[in-house]
Nucleic acid binder design. Structure first.
Lengths: 114, 114
DNA sequence: AAGATAGTTAAGCATCCACTTGACTGTAGT
DNA sequence: ACTACAGTCAAGTGGATGCTTAACTATCTT
């Protein structure tokens, strides 16, 4: 529990790369092989492999090899954790704004009543 | 519209750093000065400044200077965009799983009917 | 068995990142 | 005026990142 942030470090970092996000977007539509993932990317196969390793290292993606083809798929749990962290900050902020709004409205009421 | 991904690149990269996430978590609870943000971080003030510049460059944070103190606050729009991208991938994946479940259930039905 | 396909490993390289220290600027309190 | 405070600018450094090419392995196809 102490270092649970390190997972988020890696996940956010993994998603900071447009090629890796493209891979995730593709995998969200269903499993795919390495070369299928590589096709839309303008880089060498080893480079794609390295991106996949980054995505696997932070559990955003999983893969198994059957014969000579490795099939990759989304691992939704980490996606959920990333989403939750972001949502938490946003809602914390928005709830605070609401309270502030209430306070100001109250204040205005008092002003009127005087 | 063409390069809207570059914003996400920067936002995800910004959030990949634990110190920067700590800053965002703090700001979600309300505006704060630079030194207030620096207090829990074990690094020099210029380092904190650089983190803030990263957060401002991708519009996750905004700030104004009044007198000698710069007050920083969350800029929720980019947080929303990050959240939406992640949510989109997750839901795309989950809807696909649902369809797959339906298909399998249907298949089982046919099997029974035969 | 020979060749094509799919992926993997290793090494090297340019660039970027997070941080530091030191010098400096503008504002506030006394 | 003068000292402290809050923040800023600039330059440098060590280590990580994203890519490349070349060589290699394992599996399918004919």
């Amino acid at each position: 529990m102490i270092n649970q942030g390190a997972d988020l470090d890696r996940a956010f970092h993994a998603l900071a790369d447009p090629s890796r996000r493209l891979i995730v977007e593709r995998l969200a539509r269903g499993p795919a092989s390495v070369s299928e993932l590589a096709r839309p990317l303008t880089m060498s196969l080893p480079a794609v492999m390295q991106h996949l390793q980054v995505l696997e290292a932070c559990s955003l993606v999983a893969s198994e090899k059957a014969g000579r083809v490795r099939t990759c798929r989304i691992e939704p749990e980490m996606l959920r954790r990333v989403e939750q962290w972001v949502a938490r900050q946003r809602t914390t902020w928005e709830r605070r704004l609401d309270r502030l709004g209430d306070y100001l409205a109250e204040d205005q009421q008092e002003g009127i009543q005087r």
